[in-house]
Amino acid sequence: MEQRQGRGELAIGIGVLALAGVILWQAGTIPSPPYAQMGPRVALYIIGGGLALLGAALAFTAAAGRWRAEIDADAGPPDLRALAWLGGALVINIMVIEKLGFIIASTIMFALIARAFGSMKLLRDGAIGLAIALTAYLGFDKLLGIRIGAGILEGIL
């Protein structure tokens, strides 16, 4: 268990190092105009270099077992089933929002997220979601003049 816990932290450190690598690599691809005192690359080098140092420090402390960032370890492992419902809600929303429009897509997302948080009243949640999405859409449209995308219901309103 101790061993397993340190792995996430180590992965974060390596991830930060990788990000630093990407930034430094990108910096190399930018042509620097000769006339600028401080070209567009300098900031990238500073930030990439800083991230590389920080990533190394994170990875080192994690590997040495001196970094246990997990808050409230006694709360148990993350609830993967709930996260799956939530993730599903977000993915479906991205996939259908253009076809069905903001209001219907939001209604579906609302019901699925409520399910992720343990609500079993699918119909009630859907109705509330629809009401919130409608209110938000009309509020933004009528009060602020901002149209939240086009869609089936949006065309009627």
Partner: peptide, 24 residues
């Protein structure tokens, strides 16, 4: 209730991104 609260929060969060360009 928390389920309704957080589901609602994500609807508003999505608006913030979607009304920028209307692109998923």
């Amino acid at each position: 209730p928390a389920p309704l609260l957080y589901a609602g929060i994500l609807i508003f969060a999505t608006i913030g991104a979607y009304n920028k360009s209307g692109s998923p």
